[in-house]
Write a protein that binds this DNA or RNA. Structure first.
Length: 117
DNA sequence: AGGGTGACGGGCC
DNA sequence: GGGCCCGCCACCC
C-alpha cells in the first residue's frame, strides 16, 4: 500500500478495514470446536493490547449475528459472563454442543485453543 | 470534553 | 490455585 501502516491511525490500519472489521474477520475464522481468548483475537487482528475492545465489539454484535462470538473466551479458559446468568448458560451450551468439556466451570485452553499451523 | 466503565490480562502474593 | 490489583484503551454519557 502507498501509506505505510505506522503512519495510519490504529483504527484504520491494515487493508483499509476498521479495527472492528478486522476483529470480525478473525472471530469468523475460529474453527468449530476451538476457542480463542480476547487477547488472542486482538493480537491476530494486529491490535495487541486491545483485549477489552474485543469484548466491547462482541457485546455490540447484533443478536442475530452469524459470527461465532461464543468461541471467544477469556485467557483462563472460562466464560466471561457471571456464572448462572442466561448469557453464561447460552455460551456454555453452544460450546458444549461443539464438544468442549467443562470441568468445574472451566475448560482446557491447552486443548481447545485455536492455533495456526 | 473528560472521567467512569468494562464479554481483558498478567503479575504478585 | 484463586483472589486482588493495576495497566490497558475505545466507548459512552
Amino acid at each position: 500500500m502507498i501509506i505505510p501502516d505506522f503512519a495510519l491511525p490504529r483504527t484504520s490500519r491494515g487493508y483499509g478495514l476498521t479495527s472492528k472489521e478486522r476483529i470480525w474477520l478473525i472471530v469468523h475464522q475460529i474453527p468449530h470446536g476451538k476457542v480463542a481468548s480476547y487477547g488472542q483475537v486482538a493480537r491476530m487482528a494486529d491490535l495487541p493490547g486491545y483485549a477489552r475492545y474485543v469484548g466491547y465489539v462482541m457485546k455490540t454484535l447484533p443478536s442475530d449475528t452469524r459470527l461465532p462470538w461464543y468461541r471467544v473466551v477469556n485467557s483462563q479458559g472460562k466464560i466471561s459472563f457471571p456464572p448462572g446468568t442466561s448469557q453464561y448458560l447460552r455460551q456454555k451450551s453452544l460450546l458444549e454442543e461443539e464438544g468442549i468439556v467443562f470441568i468445574d466451570g472451566r475448560f482446557s485452553m491447552g486443548q481447545y485453543r485455536w492455533q495456526l499451523r
